[in-house]
């Protein structure tokens, strides 16, 4: 009892050091805290305020006087009837449901091929990462060129078909959606590959060797040893792509501008267009806020679940 009491009571010098550290820690984190306050907390409060009004930058009213255009919750009730919003949301989900599994399977397949060493592995690995590094807007422009009706994609198809192919990829609603999905898969498969390969390489080799000696087939080894160890990494890789894919804008907007019509209009493109063309910012603020609140709840829940599962596994 006495020994423990002596041990835990800090000596004067240590006490000072703890106070110093706390002070230094406060000052070190202050800039980051202020920046978050400046771009997240304050703007979101502002957004709540504007979302309850009919404010638009063309009204000539400063934003803090937007309460003159108060419309209570009309923006939020309008949202329920906004077909274009719901279809953009549905399309974003559809794009995600196609892109993410394609990227995952291609990335996993490539990662499996890259697990053990072979001549040229390092070089090919670097080459495969290139698409991920290309500026997404530039990638959008590349695919815009590729899918022109006189472009190389049709040229290749003509070569295989033996007769000239003139598909207008970007002006047909379904084909345009296909084209933008191709550009997304092209750009982000390398990311899946990179993360999944890092996970595969981390699977302990002695266990695999032991299983091989015991006569386990490749499939058995993969399902019983590799996959369980990869679980966290797979979840992280999928989560990253789901989050990023939900925000998708650059390559889609450059390739099609959301068109033809609204055929490739994802949620980010929808918000952008309403902001820039229809200029009803009060309504856009409401739309954006609904998305933010939904994402906050989902992400807070997911983060909590993940840190819990990590604690129990440790």
């Amino acid at each position: 009892m006495t020994a423990a009491a002596i041990d835990t009571s800090p000596t004067p010098i240590e006490h000072e050091d703890v106070r110093d550290s706390r002070k230094l820690g406060f000052w070190l984190t202050l800039p980051a805290q202020l920046l978050v306050l400046f771009i997240a907390v304050f703007p979101i409060l502002m957004q709540v305020y504007i979302s309850l009004t009919d404010w638009s930058p063309l009204d000539g009213i400063d934003w803090w006087q937007a309460h003159q255009l108060w419309n209570s919750f009309a923006n939020y009730t309008d949202l329920l009837d906004d077909d274009r919003f719901w279809s953009a949301l549905g399309r974003t989900a559809l794009v995600m449901a196609i892109c993410v599994p394609c990227e995952f399977l291609l990335g996993l397949g490539l990662a499996i091929l890259f697990v053990d060493n072979f001549p040229g592995r390092r070089f090919l690995y670097s080459v495969l990462l290139v698409p991920m590094m290309v500026v997404p807007a530039v990638a959008g422009y590349m695919f815009f060129m590729l899918f022109q009706s006189g472009g190389p994609v049709n040229d290749l198809l003509s070569f295989f078909a033996g007769s000239p192919v003139r598909i207008a990829w970007l002006s047909d609603p379904n084909l345009a959606l296909f084209a933008v999905i191709v550009s997304d898969v092209w750009q982000w498969t390398p990311l899946m590959f990179l993360i999944l390969l890092a996970g595969l390489v981390g699977v302990p080799e002695d266990q695999l060797r032991a299983a091989t000696l015991l006569g386990a087939s490749w499939t058995t080894r993969f399902v019983t040893i590799v996959l369980p160890r990869m679980k966290t990494i797979i979840i992280i890789a999928l989560a990253i792509r789901v989050i990023e894919n939900f925000k998708v804008f650059d390559n889609f907007y450059i390739m099609t501008g959301g068109g033809p019509g609204v055929a490739t209009e994802t949620i980010s493109i929808y918000i952008y267009k309403v902001t820039q063309q229809e200029l009803i910012w009060g309504y856009v603020a409401a739309v954006a806020l609904v998305i933010l609140i939904t994402l906050s709840i989902v992400s807070a829940y997911a983060i909590k679940r993940m840190s819990q599962s990590r604690e129990t596994s440790q």
């Binding site: 550290s21 706390r22 230094l24 820690g25 406060f26 070190l28 984190t29 980051a32 805290q33 978050v36 771009i39 997240a40 304050f42 703007p43 979101i44 502002m46 957004q47 504007i50 989050i243 939900f246 925000k247 804008f249 949620i267 980010s268 918000i271 952008y272 902001t275 910012w281 856009v284 603020a285 739309v287 954006a288 806020l289 998305i291 933010l292 994402l295 906050s296 992400s299 807070a300 983060i303």
Partner: peptide, 26 residues
């Protein structure tokens, strides 16, 4: 080193999850 920052780590993850388009109006 000092465990300072409070909610900062979580706030930074959330900042990353938000689509930029949805926070850009303000």
């Amino acid at each position: 080193r000092f465990g300072s920052g409070g909610n900062l780590p979580l706030a930074l993850i959330q900042l990353r999850i938000f689509p930029p388009m949805a926070v850009m109006i303000p």
